[in-house]
């Protein structure tokens, strides 16, 4: 198992360096620079432009800049935002719990609804239930997130008044963040109604962010289940007289989970991408919106630092998924070892 983990980690490290390079180059490939954008219509003289670029170290050859960047990274320094002048790591740490909280809730919702929906569709193949589940999943997958979010706000918040429009908690509640996770902090605050308020603010963004992963998981579960259900060992289990619940729950599901887990792992990246729009619509103070604004403002430090941190998290999740394979199917672990 340790050898397996070591091998997986060994693959992750060069990927991490690759990401540092891509993140560094990518933002510099975009036309324009932070000084020009900061000056706007007012304009800036070439001399002053050169002075400001030099002050930020952007006048040096790109390889030298990259070298400095790696050296800073080695010391745990992700740089300072050009715009806000705050350390990138500090900004990321402030905003990340909000994205994490929303992503966890969205992933839980997607798994809790997507898995059973896919299983039911597979076991009821060709029926109206199957068609309904698959059509809904296709609709969910194709839905533009921005439109879907606004539709939910207008209906549930505007027309029915059931849910708050946006934000993480009612402005009535005021407490210093402890963990950054609003559900936990609201409980810790001890203020009556704070937890319910935080929960109610999570509902619509969770639904919106979960929509695409939910559809993907449902479709993937269905096709994986269909494949497994046609295997000989499932037929044997049935022939032995096992009940359908035991056949599906014990024999079929476990093997069908391998591709499903792969998809779930990949959906973490999709969630971060979806978070950009969801966070904008619901005024959710997370890293998605922060990254987009940083790109627009050519905040090199924030973009390269943020991308790196996000990539590191996605890689860690995928590493965890790889390890999960081994737990679910020991054969994979032994083969890789």
């Amino acid at each position: 198992m340790f050898l397996y983990l070591f091998k997986k980690l060994a693959v992750t490290i060069p990927t991490f360096f690759g990401v540092t390079l891509v993140a560094f180059i990518f933002i510099r490939l975009l036309p324009g620079d932070p000084v020009l954008l900061m000056a706007g219509e007012r304009g800036i003289s070439d001399e002053r432009h050169a002075v400001l670029m030099a002050e930020m170290g952007f006048d040096k050859p790109i390889l030298v800049q990259y070298g400095y960047y790696l050296a800073d990274l080695a010391h745990g320094d992700f740089g300072t935002s050009i715009i806000t002048k705050r350390p990138v790591l500090e900004e990321f740490a402030t905003l990340f719990p909000a994205t994490m909280e929303l992503s966890i809730c969205a992933m839980l919702l997607a798994i809790l609804l997507g898995l059973p929906a896919g299983m039911i569709a597979a076991t009821k193949r060709g029926t109206a239930i199957d068609h309904t589940v698959m059509t809904t999943a296709l609709a969910g997958y194709s839905m533009p997130i921005f439109w879907w979010g606004l539709l939910l706000i207008i209906f549930f918040s505007g027309t029915l008044g059931w849910t708050p429009v946006s934000g993480r908690i009612s402005l009535l509640y005021y407490f210093e963040p402890v963990t950054g996770f609003m559900l936990i902090d609201s409980l810790l605050s001890g203020q009556e109604g704070a937890f319910q308020s935080a929960l109610s603010h999570l509902i619509l963004p969770t639904i919106v962010l979960a929509t695409i992963p939910l559809a993907v998981i449902a479709r993937q579960t269905r096709s994986a289940m269909l494949e497994v259900l046609s295997e000989d060992y499932v037929r044997t289990a049935r022939a032995k007289g096992l009940g359908p619940q035991r056949v599906i729950g014990l024999h079929a599901l476990r093997n069908a989970m391998i591709p499903v887990i792969t998809v779930i792992g990949l959906q973490v990246g999709v969630l971060f991408a979806g978070a950009i729009l969801t966070e904008t619509i619901f005024s959710w103070p997370g890293i998605g919106k922060w990254m987009v604004e940083s790109i627009f403002r050519r905040d090199y430090s924030a973009v390269q630092g943020g991308l790196l941190l996000i990539a590191a998290i996605v890689m860690l999740v995928n590493l965890a998924v790889d390890l999960l394979y081994g737990i679910i199917n020991p054969q994979i672990r032994h083969t890789d070892s």
Binding site: S157, V165, G167, I281, S283
Partner: peptide, 18 residues
């Protein structure tokens, strides 16, 4: 200041009294 970047959402909040 409730930071709300999307103009449509701002309008919904205004209508809802938020």
């Amino acid at each position: 200041f409730a930071i709300t970047p999307d103009a449509s959402v701002r309008y919904q909040k205004l209508k809802a009294g938020e």
